[in-house]
Design a protein around this nucleic acid. Sequence first.
DNA 1: TTTACTGCAAACATTTTGCAGATGT
DNA 2: ACATCTGCAAAATGTTTGCAGTAAA
Lengths: 160, 160
Amino acid sequence: MLSAVNTSTSGHPGSAVDDMVQSLDAAGYRMTDSRRAVIDLICTRDGAFETADLVADARRRKIEAARATIFRTLEILTGLGVVERLDLPNGDHSYVRCDSRAHHHHLVCTRCQRSIDLEDLGMTPILAKVARRTGYKIDRHRVELFGLCPTCQKRASPAP
Amino acid sequence: MLSAVNTSTSGHPGSAVDDMVQSLDAAGYRMTDSRRAVIDLICTRDGAFETADLVADARRRKIEAARATIFRTLEILTGLGVVERLDLPNGDHSYVRCDSRAHHHHLVCTRCQRSIDLEDLGMTPILAKVARRTGYKIDRHRVELFGLCPTCQKRASPAP
DNA sequence: TTTACTGCAAACATTTTGCAGATGT
DNA sequence: ACATCTGCAAAATGTTTGCAGTAAA
């Protein structure tokens, strides 16, 4: 049995943490301190992040979670669809927490990394048309949008 | 001045090679044997490829082009928009030759890697709507479609 | 002749893995 | 108790870089 644990010091609702914890549990994974720690690290961030960010956060906050464990946990969470892996315009790999488990895409601020989930962009008819024209059987697609969030648009100069 | 050189042994039209050679020339890059070799390697392939593929092809065909040169050339060609970098569903980085210099996206076969360029998917209104709703200023997007090409659909079993 | 380019090997960054011991259930 | 996890450190990848020599223009 699991008790919901949210040690986050940020203003985030515990639901994100709970959601991840429950997903892990439901999938039969053991709930360990390290995993809870990684989940907390993820939920404390509120945009796209790289593994290096989590490693740095962990060290800074003196949370014990080995690099390998962070990678392993991220892999599991990605498999569960609780987190998604995406590719920044510069080619780096990063991750985002997903608010919903349904099919969706992400819009990421290229300045602050803040990201929002976009559901139903209306790609279906486009995909159907492409499939019809090309004869390909399209079974997956990636759509990632990048730009400046409202806040960063106001701060014109380079990131802090 | 440049002479068009197409040493490709494949059935591909020389135009792709010429196109790349001319792009390099137009941008002021020197035309060297290594670069010609890398271009030839790229044009001999007809789908998405990883750098490792080119390295392997080069060695197999006994073409001299150091690994570093392949990376460097690919970087230049990417900058010129003659080649595009994309991310496979499995997370690997790969490249595709672009038929056109105009804005477009790619549809890649997950079995044989064959890829076709897609122009004008009709994303503009979608982007506009998202921008309006979210307040983000969207300045770039990535759309990559994956599936099975007509040929691979017929061959049901795992790749050769 | 001048400056860009190449090859090579070393340096780097990132992610994976083997294994002995720790720990959930 | 027993299988799953973790940490660690080594290894495997993938990509970049410094430099002395080579070759375009």
